[in-house]
Write a protein that binds this DNA or RNA. Structure first.
Lengths: 336, 336
DNA sequence: TTGAAAGCGATACCAC
DNA sequence: GTGGTATCGCTTTCAA
């Protein structure tokens, strides 16, 4: 007879309980076809021995791993670390474990990860991307598990995100209300945020030439020193006598703008009005505090998780009709 | 005959290659006891079919999962998100996948995670804790895999961290050099940082009553609104005519102090000199920029990983002699 | 309600 | 060098 603490397999537990391996399995999986009596005695033994079923073997036999992969472009961005925290909360709260990857926006890496996760029999995947046309999208579509994209609405894939154009429009409206007369976007021209920003401004009668962009890089990979240089240049060369409005692709860059404003003696919000994006914790840390476009992160995480779970349950059937959930962003006014 | 793209198991691959399952396994695991010729033909088939061996089955058969668990108290703290990023880099770079957990400093959660990870046959674990006497330590010691603690030096466990007392001493010296005459620590009295801070000040002839602490909570769980209130109170009631020095347990709180200083018209660094801890990205975002104690995060991550790998290789033998690696912190002077 | 046994897809030992 | 096969610890039919 084994000592209780030495029980490491269900067979040993079954022997100790005087039942069969199959019965122990049923008890542990909450099957109803077990008599209360045997269920109790088995559970008692489980408690006493502190037995945990081997999850690898479970995965192998059942084909489900209770493992969810999460790919983010950059956890060091407070927006993504917050997102990660919310997702982790959802996963662990629902009995899943989370495998995390930092992609740095590299689509080769993303593809590798998808393969790796298929090999691990992951049940599903969350991914946030930074490119609109990532080469990893086809791979994502053909994964053996459902994928939910959390950054943008991608055709053919389940997506949960905000309406970025609407975010841009909110920023535009705010800058207009603050009497700005020329407008700049720090980020890529093809960013939906800029599309919405520009559209709103044009509709409100702003002249085309009063709307410009700069810092046209992949934002996730731009190093901040370079951005700071661009901001300095902006402060020195681009400001007119009338009030200028600056909308930044994310809060991280907006804070760089604030620093550059200090360096170049540009008064915020007197000469320059500033709007960031993501409404991260750094908005309140900056001086002056940063006005920003807020994403309902908790809802995004929760709905993403619900959607993924639904797709996991649907299995191969549901994979043909990807779903999109679009949230509305909101403006959080602060001092900038 | 299966189509190439349908090959999902090593047996199928073996059939297609006209060799045995065992041979395929040898090829895939880089065994030398395979002729160049068969190795080439198998590899060719692997490439053509895009075959990936099932990692779950590998884990099951070999007993090693190439899975490493990481537990952090709070990814939203930029210090930890940076640490996570470095660790992820190490893990993925060395062929491991990383399962991530946010513990919120809850030792019950930590214990659960250890059990879960044993069930998943994790190869090792990194953990950062916030309590000196966490109840999860005994569980950590008895895990089936090696554990490396990344926040403090804990007896009986592998640890990689900085000398927190030295960090406190650096802060003290800096405040002394800046002519402060009274000294405050925002954080717990029993924090090593304070021990070192206080010791250094006393040695330099500062009177005991000139050294105080406030905000004596578990720092990871304190909500920032509460901290802001405490900072306001501090600014209003605790500053004397002579210059005051404030040392904060981390940068997050130090930034709250800066905000409170603005609100209460306290000039930094004229009336108040401020030192944070961790030297996170927010030091450069604050205004004035924040002087902080820096931890060599990249080295900490790299050495932690090396240590963990060594312990994994040693197996059951090496687990009896836990190792500690202590780094030196450094002061990064900025405007505060 | 219970038990026996067939997988799940690899690894690694033992023959040849 | 190569192949056959026991094995890892569980889930899940199928019978009883």
């Amino acid at each position: 007879m084994k000592a209780l603490t030495q029980i490491t397999t269900m067979q040993e537990l079954a022997d100790a309980a005087g039942v069969s391996l199959a019965t122990v399995s049923r008890v542990l999986n909450g099957s109803d076809k077990v008599s209360e009596k045997t269920k109790e005695s088995v559970m008692e033994l489980v408690r006493q021995s502190g037995f945990f079923p081997n999850e690898t073997a479970r995965t192998m036999a059942a084909g489900k791993s209770r493992l969810i992969a999460v790919i983010l472009p950059d956890v060091e961005n407070p927006y993504f670390s917050r997102l990660l925290s919310e997702i982790e909360n959802q996963c662990v709260g629902h009995g899943y474990s989370m495998i995390f990857f930092n992609s740095k926006g590299d689509s080769e890496k993303e593809k590798d990860i998808v393969n790796k996760m298929m090999a691990r029999q992951a049940d599903g995947m969350f991914i946030a991307m930074t490119k609109y046309k990532s080469e990893s999208i086809p791979v994502l579509t053909q994964a053996t598990f459902p994928v939910v994209v959390m950054s943008q609405n991608i055709e053919g894939l389940n997506s949960v995100c905000i309406d970025h154009q609407e975010g841009g429009a909110l920023a535009a409206r705010h800058l207009l209300e603050n009497n700005c007369e020329s407008f700049f976007f720090f980020g890529r021209k093809d960013d939906d945020k800029f599309t919405g920003f520009r559209k709103e401004l044009l509709e409100k009668g702003i002249a085309e030439e009063k709307i410009q962009t700069f810092g046209d890089n992949d934002w996730y990979s731009t190093n901040f020193d370079e951005a700071s240089g661009q901001m300095d240049y902006f402060m020195q060369e681009k400001l007119s006598d009338r009030k200028t409005g600056l909308f930044c692709v994310n809060d991280l860059f907006a804070v760089r703008a604030i620093r550059a404003a200090h360096r170049n003696n540009v008064k915020i919000p007197d000469m320059l009005s500033l709007v960031g994006f993501d409404n991260t914790m750094i908005c309140d840390m900056a001086y002056p505090t940063l006005t920003s476009i807020s994403q309902p992160l908790e809802e995004i995480a929760a709905e993403s998780f619900n959607l993924l779970c639904r797709k996991i349950k649907e299995g191969k059937n549901g994979e043909k009709c990807p779903q999109s959930i679009i949230f509305h962003p909101s403006l959080v006014k602060r001092e900038s």
